[in-house]
Amino acid sequence: MEIAYFLGCIMNNRYPGIEKATRILFDKLDVKLNDMEGASCCPAPGVFGSFDKKTWVSIAARNLVIAEEMDSDLMTECNGCFGSLFEANEELQHDSALKDEVNEVLSEVDKEYNGSINVRHFAEVLYNSIGLDKLGELVEKQLNLDVAVHYGCHFLKPTADIGIDNAERPRILDDLVEATGARSVPYKDKMLCCGAGGGLRARDKDVALSITKEKLDNMVDADVDAIVEVCPFCHMQFDVGQVEVNQKYGTNYQIPVFHLAQLYGLAMGLNKGELTLDAHQINSDPVLAKLVAELDANATE
């Protein structure tokens, strides 16, 4: 299996450990990730989609064309990129007037959108094309962790178009997390947004942080060891945003944040340096130490 690997912005430009873990994971799974040379920002659905639809859909279409030229489906591990590219692809496939309009713009750069590929999310690829059994075989260390799973918004919604899982009570991520031995812990308002999307973090950080704080409060109440998500933007909001919440509200929250790819990285035995966890704002050492201690304890038993 081969797939066009769409990077986006925040993962590769802020949290490269997610990209590293993904490349190692897919290598082990015997799936070839082909780089999309010259791809750009997706561009962000709630941000550029809010500014100017034509610009948004044209830049998105250019990215889609790069995958079309590679003759393969596209995979991204960011909810925002997924939402943007999936939605643009869907609209362009069903609206010929929009397609013509976009192709006129793309003719400026010698590209033409055809609508020949599918846009897929990393987690959906793992779940549907790899499967939990095969993923389970990769796990070298059963992760004895209590995890707050955060779905984010653009992975599943709008369900009428995307249809991966139910948006109110989904299972897909919980199952993927539990394949590593970790436990997905229920917590209040699990499906709540991280607060960053739609340009809100840039426009009004206080409001964004107040949503993030509500989320963190609920996670702390559930006494979790870590947050696991599938969106680098949520990742950043929980990592950088957690520090900002602590400053703003006088809390002392220290919940480490792992992208699902990093969680699999831990399960495959990668160290924190390879996963760039040591560059996160929130220190994951206590949780990693707990994992190691448990492994040692198990080994001596």
């Binding site: 659905p45 709630g46 989609g49 809010s50 918004c153 653009h154 919604k157 709008p158 369900t159 009428a160 948006a167 109110e168 499906m191 709540l192 947004c193 607060g195 960053a196 999307g197 739609g198 340009g199 809100l200 426009r203 009004d204 409001v207 964004a208 949503i211």
Partner: peptide
């Protein structure tokens, strides 16, 4: 108008689609 995070909760739950 700019406070929306585009989380889609409203749209998902809208009884009138």
């Amino acid at each position: 108008l700019w406070m929306c995070t585009t989380c889609y909760t409203c749209q998902e739950r809208c009884p009138r689609s």
